[in-house]
Computed example of a mutant assay.
Amino acid sequence: MEVGPVDTSWHPRAACRGADPELFYPRGRGSAGVARARRICKACPTRQLCLDAALAVPHALDYGIWAGTTREQRRRMRQDRAA
């Protein structure tokens, strides 16, 4: 799948800006890091833009927390969109 340019103009307004990136790439299932990352994402003014970017970029489906979603949630979203 070819991916065109992804809009990143929203990055400076993201609630995660300045947060430790490791927080959004927790190790292990059920990690406390997932809950902390989701709390940051929940209040983010750019959450929808982040989710749109994550669904547009294939590698984002496999790693980390994006817009408060896990990779499993994003995979289901992409499958639903394709159906």
Rank of each mutant, 00 (worst) to 15 (best):
L49G: 02
P5Q: 15
A14S: 04
D62C: 11
V34N: 01
E2M: 13
Q73R: 10
G33H: 04
W10L: 04
R17W: 07
A53R: 07
Y63K: 14
I65D: 00
R17C: 03
V57G: 13
R39I: 08
D80G: 13
M1V: 14
A43D: 08
E2N: 14
D20S: 12
V34H: 06
R38A: 04
A15P: 00
L23D: 08
D7P: 07
Q48K: 12
L61N: 02
A14R: 14
P21F: 06
L51A: 01
G18Y: 11
R17S: 03
G68R: 03
D52I: 09
A83Q: 13
D52E: 10
A56C: 02
V3H: 11
A19D: 13
L55K: 05
I65P: 01
Y63C: 15
H11Q: 12
F24L: 05
W66A: 01
A19Y: 10
R76V: 09
Q79K: 14
R17I: 12
T70Y: 03
E2T: 05
A35R: 09
W66I: 01
R39M: 02
Y63P: 05
P12N: 15
P21W: 06
L51N: 07
A56T: 01
R17G: 07
Y63I: 10
A14H: 09
R38Q: 05
R76C: 11
R27K: 15
R81V: 07
E22A: 15
A53S: 02
T8E: 06
I40S: 00
A56Q: 03
A67M: 11
P45Q: 09
H59A: 14
G64A: 11
D80H: 15
A53P: 00
V57Y: 11
G64P: 10
L61D: 03
A35M: 06
G18C: 08
M1F: 08
R78L: 13
M77H: 02
C44D: 01
R27E: 08
A60Y: 09
G30T: 12
Q48P: 09
S9H: 13
L23P: 01
R76N: 14
C41F: 02
G18H: 09
A19N: 15
Y25R: 05
R36C: 00
A56Y: 00
L23G: 00
R29Y: 03
D52L: 04
D52Y: 06
P58Y: 07
P58A: 03
A54W: 00
R81S: 06
E72I: 12
A54G: 02
R74K: 07
R81H: 10
P58H: 14
D20L: 14
D80Y: 13
Q73M: 09
R78S: 11
Q48H: 08
R29F: 11
R36I: 07
D80W: 15
A14F: 06
I65T: 01
Q48G: 09
M77R: 13
R47W: 09
